[in-house]
């Protein structure tokens, strides 16, 4: 019972600290924003730990963070193998192929307004469909190994990428295109020098959406059949054995991988589209 009260006290203390920080000048700075978020996250973890121990929740239902941390530390080789199989082989290779194909297809149909008018509504519609459903079909076609996972990812990221790139290629202004024409620039020159750079914010928007989709696709596809390695495989078998600490360890790895991929894309975006208003604080 004491632990429960301690959890309550910690929650209130953390919240009060954050309130004070958010009101002070420090809360406006970059370091302040980060530390507020970190304090909140840390408070949640502490409260979780104390509540689970205080209320004696069975570890089969919810293991405390310390146990999960211990599990991560002791099964690093397994987690690494799963990470390589699912994220590096399945998700990343599919992500690169799918996004590349999406951008290329957008550039190809960019020359024909007729194709654009025809493909865009369909692309928009398909982007909203539950495409994860093709996972079993692709597993049937490409086998259990990472190739089928990459194929699912390719299909999932293709349409968001296509739609975003097409929108981006139309983002340059009439005046700018006229200027390129005045300078006697050909189609490819104007594409390379003006329209592709102008499309970059849209392309990066598509890449960010795709990065989350890629991980989802790779993990879902593993539910339909996989070799005995991979995050989706590990999660579904460990859930069956009630090894919830291992499941949470995999979730932590998945969260880290997802955030890292997203952060990497955001970082590259800042370098490439430094001129865009949203990047200039």
């Amino acid at each position: 019972m004491i632990l429960v009260f301690a959890a309550l006290a910690i929650w209130l203390a953390g919240w009060a600290l954050n309130m004070a920080l958010a009101r002070s000048w420090f809360g406006e700075s970059r370091a302040g924003r980060i530390s507020i978020a970190l304090i909140f996250g840390g408070t949640v973890l502490l409260v979780w730990e104390l509540l689970v121990r205080g209320l004696e929740v069975s570890p089969v239902i919810l293991p405390p963070p310390s146990v999960i941390g211990g599990k991560i530390a002791e099964s690093l080789p397994v987690l690494w193998a799963d990470f390589v199989q699912t994220v590096l082989k399945g998700a990343l290779s599919g992500f690169v192929m799918g996004c590349g194909a999406g951008v290329l297809a957008a550039i190809l149909i960019d020359r024909s307004p007729f194709l654009q008018k025809g493909l865009l509504p369909i692309g928009n519609f398909v982007a909203a469909l539950p495409i994860v459903g093709v996972a079993p079909i692709l597993v049937m076609w490409f086998g259990f190994d990472w190739q089928s996972k990459a194929a699912v990812v390719v299909i999932m990221v293709f349409f968001p990428m296509l739609v975003n790139t097409v929108a981006g290629l139309q983002a340059s202004e009439r005046m700018q295109r006229d200027l390129m024409a005045t300078w006697g620039a050909g189609y490819w020159q104007s594409l390379w020098k003006l329209r592709l750079p102008a499309a970059m914010p849209f392309i990066f928007n598509g890449l960010k959406i795709s990065s989350t989709l890629a991980l989802i696709g790779a993990i879902v596809a593993e539910f339909f059949g996989s070799p005995i390695v991979g995050m989706g495989f590990r999660i579904s078998t460990e859930v069956g054995r009630l090894g919830l600490d291992m499941v949470w360890a995999e979730i932590a790895v998945a969260a880290l991988a997802g955030s890292a991929l997203y952060g990497l894309i955001a970082l590259i975006e800042r370098g490439v589209t430094f001129w865009h208003p949203s990047q200039r604080h």
Binding site: T212, I219, V220, G232, I235, G258, S259
Partner: peptide, 17 residues
């Protein structure tokens, strides 16, 4: 300041996991 960053991170976690 406290919740918004985590709401964003929550979406990078593959829910299917």
């Amino acid at each position: 300041r406290s919740v918004m960053p985590w709401a964003i991170i929550s979406q990078t976690v593959p829910i299917v996991a």
